[in-house]
């Protein structure tokens, strides 16, 4: 029962995140973010991924920060 409630709560926190950074990521940088669906065009890299919760989202942002990526935009949808 409790476990199921937790499951539901987890599902509620799940979101799809769309992140845009400056500069096109080559295949090498793309491979550091295997969980992201990555497309690069017009001097930008678009990343789409499903996160379980905020902690996971901030983890991805931290990795982008450590790569020296410059954030252009971030949006989420459930």
């Amino acid at each position: 029962m409790e476990r199921e409630q937790r499951k539901t709560a987890e599902v509620n926190r799940q979101r799809t995140v769309h992140i845009v950074v400056r500069g096109e990521f080559g295949p090498r940088l793309a491979s550091t973010l295997p969980e992201c669906e990555i497309t690069s065009a017009a001097g930008e890299t678009h990343m789409r991924l499903r996160v379980r919760d905020d902690a996971e989202l901030f983890g991805v942002l931290e990795r982008l920060r450590d790569l020296g990526a410059e954030l252009v935009s971030l949006s989420t949808s459930t």
Binding site: R22, G23, E24, F25, G26, L29, G43, T45, L67
Partner: peptide, 11 residues
């Protein structure tokens, strides 16, 4: 190039 700066250069 429109590649990410450091990505391009480090490669």
């Amino acid at each position: 190039a429109s590649r990410h700066v450091a990505d391009f250069l480090s490669e």
